[in-house]
Simulated scan of single mutants.
Amino acid sequence: MSAAKTRAQNLIDENGVMVFSKSYCPYCTSTKKLLKEVGATYEVIELDQDAEGAAIQDALQEMTNQRSVPNIFISQKHIGGNSDLQAIKGKLPALIQAAGPKA
Results as ranks from 00 to 15, higher is better:
Met1Leu: 15
Met1Thr: 15
Met1Asn: 15
Ser2Gln: 09
Ala4Asn: 12
Ala4Gly: 07
Gln9Tyr: 10
Gln9Lys: 10
Gln9Ala: 08
Asn10Phe: 02
Asn10Tyr: 05
Asp13Tyr: 13
Asp13Asn: 15
Gly16Arg: 01
Gly16Thr: 05
Met18Glu: 04
Met18Leu: 01
Phe20Val: 00
Phe20Ile: 00
Phe20Gln: 00
Ser21Asp: 09
Lys22Arg: 09
Tyr24Phe: 14
Tyr24Pro: 01
Pro26His: 13
Cys28Ala: 06
Thr29Phe: 03
Thr29Asp: 03
Thr29Val: 11
Thr29Arg: 07
Ser30Met: 03
Thr31Cys: 04
Lys32Ile: 00
Lys32Trp: 00
Lys32Tyr: 01
Lys33Phe: 02
Leu34Val: 08
Leu34Tyr: 03
Lys36Gly: 05
Lys36Trp: 02
Glu37Ala: 03
Glu37Arg: 01
Val38Arg: 13
Ala40Asp: 15
Thr41Val: 10
Glu43Phe: 11
Glu43Trp: 10
Glu43Gln: 10
Val44Glu: 14
Val44Ala: 11
Ile45Glu: 06
Ile45His: 02
Leu47Glu: 11
Leu47Met: 10
Asp48Gln: 12
Asp48Pro: 07
Asp50His: 14
Asp50Thr: 09
Ala51Leu: 06
Ala51Gln: 13
Glu52Arg: 00
Glu52Trp: 00
Gly53Glu: 08
Ala54Asn: 13
Ala54Phe: 01
Ile56Pro: 11
Ile56Gly: 04
Ile56Glu: 11
Gln57Lys: 01
Gln57Phe: 00
Ala59Asn: 12
Ala59Asp: 10
Leu60His: 06
Gln61Glu: 08
Gln61Cys: 00
Glu62Val: 05
Met63Gly: 07
Thr64Leu: 08
Thr64Cys: 09
Thr64Pro: 07
Thr64Trp: 12
Asn65Cys: 06
Asn65Gly: 09
Asn65Met: 12
Gln66Ser: 04
Gln66Ile: 02
Ser68Asp: 10
Ser68Thr: 14
Ser68Pro: 04
Pro70Gln: 04
Pro70Asp: 06
Pro70Trp: 06
Asn71Phe: 02
Phe73Cys: 03
Phe73Pro: 05
Ile74Asp: 08
Gln76Val: 09
Lys77Ala: 08
Lys77Arg: 11
Ile79Gln: 01
Ile79Glu: 03
Ile79Met: 03
Gly80Pro: 08
Gly80Lys: 07
Gly81Arg: 01
Asn82Glu: 12
Asn82Arg: 02
Ser83Trp: 02
Asp84His: 13
Leu85Tyr: 15
Gln86Trp: 05
Gln86Glu: 08
Ala87Tyr: 08
Ala87Pro: 12
Gly90Met: 13
Lys91Ile: 12
Lys91Ser: 14
Lys91Arg: 13
Lys91Gln: 15
Pro93Ser: 11
Leu95Phe: 14
Ile96Leu: 09
Ile96Tyr: 12
Ala98Phe: 05
Ala99Ser: 15
Gly100Pro: 05
Lys102Trp: 10
Lys102Gly: 15
